[in-house]
Design a protein around this nucleic acid. Structure first.
Length: 561
RNA sequence: GCGCCCAUAGCUCAGUAGGACAGAGCAACGGCCUUCUAAGCCGUGGGUCGGGGGUUCGAAUCCCUCUGGGCGCGCCA
């Protein structure tokens, strides 16, 4: 509807341009929905903007624009006003509004979708947690946001691939293996001292126990020969923990299209580019571009020559590549796989990584791509009004699974999506556990279920929603809700453009609230048959929007509550 | 020290490609179930948009500066 208003104003400007030779402005005409009812359904500031260019008074310009609006345009509006410093306010005809319900009904599940992305491939990488422990609430937030963004991008016409990068090689994995092995030794009374920067969590002991149950004391070895045993522990623990991660995410309702193993894809897989493995190929590429330098026995990327603040090590003294190097190769590979648009969801503590990664990709002379990184701020868990402290290394943290079991998947997803990613998020366990109106998830789901219940009731009396009488919908509540329903498509687009699912959350809360108010005030099924049919049609459209919105967030829509 | 993020009602946060008297939820208090689900609704209060400058017809939104928080600045990831 907004586009139509925009078009009408644009046409008027065209006419003016021809008649009066007004200076053309290439700027897009801004149409907004005013906050205040007195300012109409749509408003534009073009007259104010143009006034200074034309050296006329804004209100005079506004009058000219209004005078040249087409007949067709006039039919859409009930009233057009000039207000304040020169805003033009448009008031839409009620009939034009109610008839739009048909579009919602016709599109059904597709209402809200569009073809903005035109089928372009997008790779959304998220969670990508190291398989060294259980997922915690930070990962959960990352998962909820990454998944919702994927859904939203998909809805606006992108071809989305969800990918999880498995960091299954490197120092942290070595530490994991060693930690498990030391715990294993302890089971046989051998105490060699636990690595200070190892993994201290209780789950390491559990894994050690499992290994003992499987292999007995077979793995015990003299210090000089223990590497093989440590490797075994490492692989065993990795498989175990990755299995847990996959299970958690699956139970959370996140389905990755691709699990990308660093070890298999970057170290083992041969490179398509110039022989060797992928990571080796990147080294060659960077060498050719004179971006590398040997120093102190390590290999450095001269990032400072590519716009970053300092140089970084790519290959350690011991010959092993750093995480940075792997990540460069990984992102290079993403682009080579045909993705021109990359979206990464990271924990906020990784923000420093972004510019150096860009510098490296630039050094590789990759230009035709975009990398958008969503930095997720931390989650604080609040229980009994108190913050629960968490430390991954020490192993003292509430896992994603524990919280999910306590509050349920829908509540968890919703709470994690309630805030903008750049805001710290307080996850209030006390509120999350409440099954009442104070819990916003239930509030929205309840609106959905209530509508379903009304439709059921109607069915019993053999009434079914009908578009035939939508013109009877004339209460201000009805008109207002329909107007809001009609902004859904644009809202989805906006959420996609800003990669911000929380906008959808707020929208759904408003729609649900509007419906509950309406429900309490207005009888849907009444003596008036035609009006009843129209209202049933109306509420079923509300239900469609709530359903489509919740689906994008990955939240279920229970038929009964 | 340098860099990034944040600061809006008692609490948790929306609103930031500038727009017309600043919003929601929670918390507090008082009401509403013989009528389509009370996981609901109605009513009441509550803010120098961290401080100070600047740009603009117009600033919570843009620029500068200060203050107070969080995070980063590894041959960890």
């Amino acid at each position: 509807m907004k586009e139509e208003v925009q078009k009408i104003v644009a046409e008027s400007l065209d006419v003016l341009r021809r008649k009066k030779g007004l200076a053309s402005n290439s700027r897009e005409i801004e149409i907004t929905i005013p906050k205040r009812r007195e300012f109409g359904d749509f408003s534009t500031n073009v007259a104010i903007i143009l006034a200074s260019e034309l050296n006329k008074k804004p209100r005079e310009v506004a009058e000219l624009i209004i005078d040249n609006i087409s007949i067709e345009g006039r039919n859409l509006f009930k009233k057009i006003e000039i207000a304040g410093p020169g805003f033009i306010n448009f008031f839409i005809n009620e009939k034009a509004i109610t008839s739009r319900l048909m579009e919602i009904e016709r599109l059904g599940e597709n209402y809200g979708k569009c073809n903005l992305g035109m089928g372009e491939k997008v790779l959304v990488e998220f969670v990508s947690a190291n398989p060294t422990g259980y997922l915690h609430m930070g990962h959960a937030r990352n998962a909820a946001v990454g998944d919702a963004i994927s859904n939203i991008l998909n809805a606006v016409g992108y071809d989305v691939i969800r990918e999880f990068y498995i960091n299954d090689i490197g120092r942290q994995m070595e530490l994991l293996g060693l930690s498990v092995y030391r715990r294993y030794e302890e089971l046989f009374g051998i105490k060699k001292g636990f690595p200070e920067d190892g993994y201290w969590g209780e789950y390491i002991k559990d894994i050690a126990n499992e290994i003992r149950d499987k292999r007995g004391k077979e793995l015990l070895a003299e210090e000089a020969f223990e590497q093989e045993a440590i490797d075994y522990c490492k692989d065993y623990a990795k498989d175990r923990l990755l299995g847990e991660i996959k299970k958690d995410l699956n139970d959370f309702g996140v389905a990755f299209d691709n699990w990308y193993s660093e070890q298999n894809e970057l170290h083992k897989a041969p490179s398509e580019v110039r022989g060797g493995n992928r990571i080796g190929a990147i080294k060659n590429e960077l060498m050719l571009r004179d971006a590398l330098e040997e120093k102190d026995g390590a290999l450095w990327f001269k990032a400072s020559e590519f716009g970053n603040s300092q140089d970084w090590v790519l290959v350690r003294k011991d010959g092993k590549p750093t995480y940075f190097f792997s990540d460069i190769t990984y992102h290079y590979d993403k682009i080579k796989r045909g993705f021109k648009r990359l979206v990464d969801v990271w924990g906020a503590d990784h923000h420093g990584h972004f510019s150096r990664l860009l510098a490296a990709l630039r050094a590789l002379t990759l230009n035709d791509f975009s990398l958008e990184v969503i930095l997720i701020q931390f989650v604080r868990l609040i229980k009994d009004g108190q913050e629960i402290s968490m430390s991954k290394r020490a192993g003292s943290y509430l896992t994603m699974r524990e919280v999910m079991e306590e509050v349920g998947r829908d509540v968890m997803r919703f709470f994690l999506l309630m805030r903008g990613s750049e805001s710290h998020l307080d996850f209030n366990l006390d509120l999350a556990k409440q099954e009442s109106s104070e819990n916003p998830v239930y509030y929205i789901q309840y609106a959905y279920a209530r509508i379903g219940s009304v439709l059921e009731k109607a069915k019993e009396s053999e009434l079914s929603p009908s578009k035939e009488f939508v013109n009877l919908l004339s209460l201000p509540e009805e008109i207002d809700i329909i107007k809001k329903l009609l902004t859904f498509q644009e809202l989805v687009r906006e959420s996609a453009l800003s990669l911000a699912p929380h906008k959808l959350v707020f929208y759904l809360q408003e729609i649900a609230s509007n419906f509950h108010v309406y429900y309490n005030k207005i009888r849907i099924i009444s003596e008036d048959l035609e009006l009843s049919l129209a209202r049933l049609y109306f509420v079923s459209c509300i239900r469609t929007v709530i359903r489509n919105g919740l689906r994008l967030l990955g939240i279920t829509t229970p038929e009964r509550m």
